[in-house]
Design a protein around this nucleic acid. Structure first.
Lengths: 103, 103
DNA sequence: TGTATTTATGAAAAAGTGTTCATATATTTG
DNA sequence: CAAATATATGAACACTTTTTCATAAATACA
């Protein structure tokens, strides 16, 4: 007996989605998204102090997120300001806040 | 000059969110969510054939997802049927489909 | 009972990620 | 120019995740 199975997403879309989700699926990186969803732009230093994350580590995270298209950055004097490029990303957090998974 | 910075999520919430996102942030696991969002329940074999994923690997994925509270399973005869436990999870895919990130 | 089918398990190998540290680069200021 | 400040970079390491493979366990069926 054969079962008819429905699905909507092709391999390519799934890979793109997983790629973006992976980029965000980390407490610090989620915190960055959260922070930037409420503050239009912040310097590396602002973020580092607020989240209490060491400068170099934070820089690595920010650059990864920029590379993957989630953030943008603009240099101004000594500082570099990061902001959310992808507005839909904070919605992920909202989606998940309702979930009731095992932890 | 001090900047006032707003944020909404505490460490605990961020960690929970990252945990759930990580569980889903994989092409095969996203495909499983997609599939089960359109088909109330499917056996391991159904999923394995549809996604063309080797049985043992799929089993590992399914068990992980169940363990983390995203799927449930029920045994019937030789088969084990999996279904979505966490209804909000497919929304993540939708959120992301609108994104225009770099790939 | 023996065989086929379906799913789970566990160990090992392979691949990927996160973190740290030392240092480089760029900019501002005295 | 020298010193201070802000950010980036790259290599090395530790750690986690993913995949593979061989095999076990449970059920169904001849």
């Amino acid at each position: 007996m054969e079962v008819i199975i429905n699905y909507k997403l092709n391999r390519e879309k799934l890979e793109k989605a997983a790629y973006i989700l992976k980029t965000v699926a980390h407490p610090t990186r989620l915190a960055i998204v959260d922070l930037l969803s409420m503050n239009a732009r912040l310097s590396v230093n602002d973020i580092s102090e607020t989240l209490e994350v060491e400068q170099s580590l934070l820089s690595h995270h920010l650059i990864t997120m920029k590379l993957k298209g989630i953030l943008r950055s603009e240099k101004e004097g000594q500082s570099v300001y990061y902001s959310l490029k992808e507005k839909d990303v904070p919605k992920l957090i909202e989606c998940i806040e309702h979930c009731d998974c095992n932890m």
